[in-house]
């Protein structure tokens, strides 16, 4: 039996048939991803509370006005910026790059050992990591034991410098991700280019600045974007270590949001804060995307 060449179906029908296989996925996406986001946006403009109130009402931009007028919110925004810049941009990013670069020159056992330790910190569940670092920083903790042994003054770090303590915790926990990204990126740099620079007499720092960094620029951008978004949403780590305290001194936006939405039961206001957190994340993303776009 030979197959007769049939007339191609009508273009509209054809695209309909082609769309058929992706329909279930699209429906699921709309239902479970777009749906909750739309619901989230809609309740951010209401005074919905989790206290069994009779009915909620549309309040327009009231929640956002409240947020900007709230000193605790502004404090949380500031702490979120400090936390993100210190722990993600400066900490995880630079340390990850440094580790990746050093490990290229290290011997195999050292590489395996360091890689193993760093990745272990990364795969630990957030609550476990939080508790370990709580034990490290508390008054009778490991850090103070070491300082005491060295004859240096000790203090309760979670009380005196809570935002730095939780930032350090985030560096400790998250550096592995940057290290893995940069290890992969550094492997991509052709040896000839580095060798050529070496032959031309470029020193180590110069090679880093003029060869390595420009060549892994895309990885830097992607990595910065990912770790920033991860860091902006860190909740469990800080919750376990300080509960956002003392006196709100480590209360970043996710913790502030949790307090408003679930402890004070103002889910409408809490959701509005969540949207503002989204705005902060997008602002960072815009900056990184611009960085990525410029060609060398």
């Amino acid at each position: 039996m030979t197959r007769r060449p049939g007339r191609p179906p009508h273009p509209a029908l054809r695209s309909l048939i082609r769309a058929l296989p992706v329909t279930p996925a699209t429906v699921l996406l709309v239902l479970f991803l777009a749906g909750p986001i739309a619901y989230c946006v809609s309740i951010a403009f209401t005074d919905l509370q989790l206290t069994g109130q009779a009915e909620d009402s549309f309040v327009g931009l009231e929640n956002f006005r409240t947020a900007f007028g709230d000193e605790a919110f502004r404090n949380a925004v500031w702490l979120t910026l400090v936390f993100t810049v210190v722990s993600a941009l400066l900490g995880q990013n630079t340390l990850g790059l440094a580790l990746a670069a050093l490990m290229r020159r290290a011997s195999k056992p050292v590489r395996t050992l360091v890689g193993g330790v760093v990745v272990t910190a990364w795969v630990l569940p957030e609550v476990v990591a939080g508790f370990l670092l709580y034990a490290f920083f508390r008054r009778e903790g490991t850090l103070n034991a070491v300082l005491d042994w060295l004859g240096l003054p000790t203090q309760n770090w979670l009380y005196t410098l809570p935002i730095l303590a939780v930032s350090f915790a985030n560096v400790w926990r998250g550096t592995a991700f940057s290290m893995l990204v940069y290890s992969a990126a550094l492997d991509e740099i052709p040896k000839e280019i580095t060798e050529a620079a070496e032959v031309d007499g470029a020193s180590g720092p110069r090679r880093l600045w003029h060869i390595t960094l420009p060549m892994i620029r895309r990885s830097i951008g992607t990595n910065l974007m990912l770790i920033t978004l991860q860091t902006l949403s860190v909740f469990g780590l800080i919750w376990v270590m300080t509960r956002g305290g003392p006196g709100g001194r480590s209360q970043t936006l996710p913790l502030f949001m949790y307090e408003e939405a679930f402890q004070k039961s103002m889910i409408g206001y809490g959701t509005a804060v969540a949207l503002l957190l989204l705005v902060v994340g997008s602002l960072f993303s815009v900056v990184y995307l611009r960085l990525l776009r410029t060609e060398v």
């Binding site: 709580y134 508390r138 008054r139 309760n156 979670l158 009380y159 005196t160 376990v240 270590m241 300080t242 509960r243 305290g245 003392p246 006196g247």
Partner: peptide, 10 residues
């Protein structure tokens, strides 16, 4: 207790 202990989440 010391203030820092009193405010310790644990």
């Amino acid at each position: 207790p010391e203030v820092s202990d009193a405010l310790d989440p644990n």
